[in-house]
Design a protein around this nucleic acid. Structure first.
Lengths: 216, 216
DNA sequence: AAAATGACAGCTTTCGATTTCTGTCATTGC
DNA sequence: GCAATGACAGAAATCGAAAGCTGTCATTTT
């Protein structure tokens, strides 16, 4: 069962260029994504991923420096997708306070969705976050710059009146930590959504008030 | 080394009543506390605790229904101590907004101290919290009532003007989660204290403003 | 009757041996 | 010269057997 011969597979033949225009690293990423979803990070093996890609496991190391780097790359692709969606919110022509709300709500919702629909992917994300691995640090930096943009815009448009932008940004992340940090999201995975949303709503409302009042 | 014969021990002889006025359950609790600190929850054994108390392990089950219950009782004693210190703050004749600040700061500090000086005790506390075991739920209830008292007092004294008390209390816990929840405290165990305190200060300041403004 | 015990079943941990996996490298094929 | 490989060392997972621990209970002790 689960034959190891991918030769006659519909999407890729044994010769790399024949039908699939995807480069080897992207193909490996796709296979690793599927293995991760099915087996979890612990049971994913470089050997099996390589075999499904029709190559020796040694060759995988030409594209990814380690198994962890491969799994982080899988998570990284999802994180990029999350950031893209959030950027859509941050770039919309809405008032800054609305955008902060939508940004935080979306960040929480996307992660909750991942936790339920792709628990293994979420586990890698969580692990990378807790261990502060590069993939997570870079995600944080980009998240921060999204929030920064909105805060900046809020200040110049007069909606927000924070004195210290850095302080304001840190405050936004700290105050919303309860509902946006992967650790917290996993912790109340089985708390009813509407209960969470009600409480998150109160916190967001408070954040907006504080930013408008410029108490930082 | 570490002889297993507690007979000639200075604090307790083989006959329970001779010199030590502590009841058997308290003595077990003390021994378990020391074992936990030294070995960690995983390596504590009911057999060893019983042996040091001069009884058979089966007899321990007369006083504690399970090993986990014994360890939770050890953590529970510490939690009670924390609550007592916090009650001292809540009962002081200070303005309610000051008391909220001192309460939250003390809650964070006591846990950070425990994390460094009694990591195994903290581990049990954290585990009980994440698993929502009775010991942690009861602690949460008592913490909540402390905060409730202060909020109540703030409202009647006119310092706070929250409409919905329940909502205000939930908000306080949610907004301070980043700095008071054991999960978060463990997560940034190695972040410099002064950095944490600066950011916590901003969050507390915001909480006070929100409570005074009565935005909830 | 209350306190404690020995003996026991079942589960978990430990340990050592074996297999599998990760990561490296010299070499081959194109 | 780039892509890929086979072979290898060291680390880690796996497995089965042995040991230890948890929790229960009938019985003994006081």
């Amino acid at each position: 069962m689960t034959p190891a011969a991918p030769r006659d597979c519909a999407e890729a033949s044994s010769t790399p260029k024949s039908r699939a225009p995807v480069s080897a690293d992207i193909r490996l990423l796709g296979i690793a994504t599927e293995h991760l979803a099915r087996l979890g990070p612990k049971r994913v093996t470089v050997v099996a991923v390589a075999a499904e890609a029709g190559m020796t496991h040694a060759n995988v190391y030409r594209y990814f420096p380690s198994k962890d780097a491969l799994l982080d790359a899988v998570a990284g692709r999802w994180l990029r997708d999350v950031e893209t969606r959030l950027a859509g919110i941050a770039d919309a022509p809405d008032p800054a306070d609305d955008k902060i709300e939508r940004l935080l709500v979306a960040l929480a919702a996307l992660q909750r969705d991942a936790l339920t629909s792709e628990p293994n992917l979420f586990a890698v994300h969580l692990d990378a976050t807790v261990a502060a691995r590069p993939i997570a640090r870079r995600h944080r930096v980009r998240l921060r710059s999204l929030v920064e943009r909105v805060v900046e815009e809020g200040i110049t448009s007069g909606i927000f009146s924070a004195r210290d932008r850095e302080r304001a940004i840190a405050y936004i992340f700290d105050a919303s930590y309860r509902f946006t940090h992967p650790l917290a999201i996993q912790h109340d995975a089985d708390v009813p959504h509407d209960l969470i949303e009600a409480r998150f709503g109160a916190v967001i409302h408070a954040i907006q008030r504080v930013l408008r009042a410029g108490v930082l």
